[in-house]
């Protein structure tokens, strides 16, 4: 990449990708429950045009529009699911920071627990096996070798 091109490339990146001023929007609610739902929702919806920000955190135009849309839908009495469906229909599951459980996300959701289970089964069987094997001679040999290696430390340890 030639230098000038690189400069303009970096420049574009800086201008488009960073929304570094806090997105602060004043929304009025009469109902504290609605207010809480609103803030929870915009914290879980992804600003599709941003680098990796929620629509709550971003100052991008689209994030503002989607915040306003969410606000209007909440005020109009829509449920959280209806609002999420509305967003998913337009922007796919990509807008949800909390991915839904379905066939393609099954591994994501149960993978960690399965892994944990396998690891523990492996651990327990391994320890059982270990308990039943007799002590090998390696232990003694190695002990001696290690002691020689660490000897000077012992020498100095007479304080």
């Amino acid at each position: 990449m030639n230098p000038i091109k690189q400069i303009s490339f970096t420049l574009i990146l800086v201008l488009t990708s960073l929304s570094i001023s806090a997105a602060i929007n004043v929304y009025q609610f009469d109902d504290p429950v609605k207010k809480e739902r609103f803030y929870n929702l915009i914290d879980e919806l992804r600003c599709t045009v941003c680098q990796n920000q929620t629509i709550a955190a971003s100052n991008a135009g689209l994030a503002k529009d989607l915040r306003n849309k969410t606000y209007k839908m909440i005020q109009a009495g829509k449920t959280d699911d209806e609002i999420k469906t509305f967003m998913v229909e337009r922007f796919t599951d990509f807008v949800l920071y909390n991915p839904p459980v379905n066939n393609s996300t099954l591994l994501l959701w149960i993978g960690p627990a399965v892994l944990m289970l396998i690891a523990f089964i492996f651990l327990i069987s391994n320890i059982r096996k270990r308990v039943s094997t007799p002590v090998t001679e390696i232990d003694a040999q190695e002990h001696e070798r290690v002691q020689t290696l660490l000897k000077q430390k012992k020498d100095g340890n007479n304080d």
Binding site: T48, V49, G61, D65, R90, F91, T92
Partner: peptide, 13 residues
């Protein structure tokens, strides 16, 4: 001007 149609069409960039 409001961007509402844009949202309906899933416009993001």
């Amino acid at each position: 001007v409001t961007g509402n149609t844009g949202i309906d069409w899933g416009v993001y960039g």
